[in-house]
Amino acid sequence: MDILVCIKRVPDISGQITLDASGRDIDHGALGHTISAHEECAVELAVQLAGATDGEVTILTLGTDDAVEQLRASLAVGADDAVLIETEDPGAYGPEDIAFAIAEAVRTRANDSRSCDLVLVGNDAADTGDFQVGVRLAYELDRPVLTGITLLRLAEEAAEVDAASEGGPTSVEAYGIGPAGTEVFRLPLPAVVAVQEGGVEPRYPSIPGRMKAKKAPLDEVDAPEPVHGNPRNALELPPEQSSTVTVLGEGPEAAGALVDVLDELGVLR
């Protein structure tokens, strides 16, 4: 099973953030960059599934040349090759534009006999949090789509059926957390899945993995021009709030004061 995983270079935020001069983005100056936890899990799922089915994993991103850092990092944990859809201005792309650009890349590769059975994306990007690129991509490609999926595996029953078919598995079992428990889907391929953290533990890159990643093939293609554009007008930071914390005391002696507070807040049953 051949799998394409879409990732996104995002700022690694742990402390204070500031805005850049345009007011449309945060100041990336001092920040490191990473991919989201959802996408790390998507890469891991892809490497496991492809490994079990003799398939290949391709990592794809839309971004500037800087995003090669994130592509190489994903190659180092077991992916086979990578695609950079290059643009100087990723901020000009709205969710529809990104979905279209990825779909174009998927179609171009398919015409080149490199079709993929599954496209994985993170459930939502850590920075823009649009919650829609995966679904829009599926509609562009006319494929079924699931979101919020934590685990993908080959169903035994499906494997028997698939053994008779020549081209590998024709479906996968997908697991996601629903309001009443774990929801299980039988997803026909080809498909798109938006992966959520929680089902697999991303592996760390090995030394041979890093060596291999340096030499792994990396395709660079030009991004199509954005048509819809990014609807963002400006970014705002929440107002700086001075702390209004009431320290009730230190150590176990303060327990009584805290139980008084719980009583006042009406949660002491």
Partner: peptide, 9 residues
């Protein structure tokens, strides 16, 4: 956006 660390207009 940014997990609630900022707001987008």
């Amino acid at each position: 956006v940014l997990g609630g660390a900022a707001f987008e207009r």
